[in-house]
């Protein structure tokens, strides 16, 4: 049963990742990434990481992807004409695309040699024994205990990092009041 779920979720995750890279329209790339994240959450559930799977669905596939969809709707309109114009001129884009395929395939082969060739025998197990219960491995209680005891410093640094990122995003994307076309912005508003 778990093998069936694993293969469905793994194929879904890889298909979603392929869609992100190859779909031309950024909006459908975002939707493809949402599918990828949901399949990845299923894989996390199979690995008994229940809290991480829940965070993945709620925060990542929910909040972060909504942010992406908003920005794609705000910015994405001009992309097609611009890319067509660029495709007509210059070979930099084509060279980069060929280079990307070469780099990706080389990296995949290297990782596969590293995984399948050497390390795989050591991890060819079903994992550590798992005992169900309210404080079992991967539950919110377990993760919360770890975060507030052993990884308290990482927890605090992560919260501080989120604060800095929120302030930085407001500073970057907020309206600048000394900007030259302030009058134009006011007219639009």
């Amino acid at each position: 049963m778990s093998a069936v779920i694993f293969f469905i979720a793994a194929i879904g995750a890889i298909a979603g990742a392929t869609g992100v890279v190859f779909i031309r329209d950024p909006f459908f790339s975002v939707l493809s990434l949402v599918g990828h994240l949901l399949c990845l959450a299923a894989l996390f559930l199979l690995l008994r990481a229940e809290f991480v799977a829940a965070v993945q669905v709620v925060v990542y596939a929910g909040a972060v992807m909504v942010l992406y969809v908003f920005v794609v709707a705000y910015v994405g309109g001009e992309e097609a004409s611009l890319s067509e114009r660029l495709r007509g001129s210059g070979t930099v884009g084509q060279g980069l695309r060929a280079g990307a395929v070469v780099v990706g395939v080389a990296l995949l082969i290297e990782l596969m040699i590293a995984l399948l060739g050497t390390g795989l025998k050591a991890i060819h197990t079903k994992g550590a024994p798992y005992v169900p219960g309210p404080h079992a491995y991967g539950t919110p209680a377990y993760i919360g205990t770890l975060l507030l005891t052993r990884f308290l410093l990482a927890f605090e640094i992560a919260s501080f990092l989120l604060l800095i990122a929120a302030v930085g995003a407001v500073v970057l994307a907020g309206r600048m009041h000394d900007h030259p076309d302030r009058a134009q912005a006011q007219v639009r508003a």
Partner: peptide, 11 residues
């Protein structure tokens, strides 16, 4: 998934 991401970032 990682290799696809690398290829996408470059391409």
């Amino acid at each position: 998934v990682f290799s696809l991401g690398v290829a996408g970032v470059i391409a």
